[in-house]
Design a protein around this nucleic acid. Structure first.
Lengths: 214, 214
DNA sequence: TCAATAGTGTCTATGAGACACTATTAA
DNA sequence: TTAATAGTGTCTCATAGACACTATTGA
């Protein structure tokens, strides 16, 4: 890298004003039998609950900044952050000129070990009123997750394999926030599933086949 | 804005290193009877052809930076830049630590007044080998445009209204890069179109109804 | 009349919704 | 046996592909 680069107008790159760049992440999960939920952290200074985020360090990839913020602020081992959108309203952050790159990360509930009282899991329907436009980021993230869960069986691996058709349908219902028709759901998913020999037999009812993705 | 804000560790916001932030834009259009094409500008320093871009000015919205870059570098009156993705590879730009926010803008061919020899229009199939990962940005932009043109009739307004079904289908074929079945295309589009009383009668053939969107 | 393009009617295959029916278990 | 859940078979309706057919123009 060269700080001495000059553009067509003879200006050095370093002479241009630069924004602070933050990453803010909606970590989504579905607890067993629960609703689609998001990780919030308590801000050390202001004391409010918000999405975990951090400023990007020099030369750091955005995805790495996300993983660092999740590890440090929420005690979460994030997996595969997915970039959503840059929020660039100059007035959105009262600390100055800050661009926020919103991310989505999807983590299976059993892998979520929230760090004490600084982090909590909240159903997305109840996670509103956050600062710095974090409500908008959450909305973006939920919309993205729902779009990928409308076709394929558990594409982000929220369920442990193998799983039954009912478990899969209940997961999709939690993600999509609506009831699904069991018949249509089964027919749409079966071509993308591989049945195994193991069955689930707990409580009454015919034993359910367990499936693998793919 | 306050430069004196301090975070939980007592550090001022201004103390954090900050990246340069650029916007780079794929301006797409379809010339009458032609293929999907993109605007390239010749770099004043290096002399190569690339996508128009600029560094974001302090407090400026990303979309405004895009419009400014199109006006100044390509002589184009951009319309509604759409954000695509942040390219953040620290090594992607040899000038230093630069984040590039890729954008898509869609402009009707008659509205494109390219500025002399500094800008040109190239079919997307022939626009490759650009610096700073601009090939990837173009690929992103084309994919986005194709996804919005797969359902609705000319959603980005590339055609002047009213237009005939053939004109609409030829536009969609140019955008999607593939032939479409006239029957299925007509049936898919008719519910989203309003017929007018005017007809097109040039050359032989039954006069074609002209339609409006919506 | 002929060539060319616009537009209609309809047959068929496919897939979703609906729902009755069978299968297999625990209690 | 009964209740409960899993899974199958099939009817109907909506839609896409295919394609024959009609409609209206310029030459």
């Amino acid at each position: 890298m060269s700080d001495e680069f000059r553009d067509a107008s003879g200006k050095r790159l370093a002479d241009y004003p630069r924004p602070s760049v933050a990453v803010d992440t909606a970590v989504l999960t579905v607890p067993a039998g629960g609703a689609l939920s998001v990780v919030q952290v308590r801000d050390a200074v202001a004391g409010d609950w918000r999405l975990p985020g951090t400023f990007v360090h020099e030369g750091e990839r955005l995805a790495d900044a996300v993983l660092r913020s999740l590890r440090e602020k929420a005690g979460v081992s994030g997996l595969a952050p997915q970039q959503l959108h840059v929020f660039d309203d100059p007035a959105r952050d009262d600390r100055g000129w800050v661009l926020s790159v919103a991310h989505l990360d999807v983590v299976p509930a059993p892998a979520l070990e929230l760090g004490g009282t600084r982090a909590r899991l909240v159903p997305v329907a109840e996670a509103n009123g956050m600062v710095h436009g974090h409500d908008d980021i959450l909305e973006f993230a939920v919309a993205r997750l729902r779009s990928v869960y409308s076709d394929a069986p558990d594409p982000r691996g929220l369920l442990d394999e193998p799983f039954t058709m009912s478990e899969l349908r209940q997961l999709h219902e939690a993600v999509l926030g609506e009831r699904l028709l069991p018949d249509s759901f089964r027919r749409a998913m079966l071509p993308h599933l591989t049945p195994t020999d193991t069955k689930r037999t707990d409580g009454p009812g015919k034993p359910a086949t367990r499936y693998l993705r793919g």
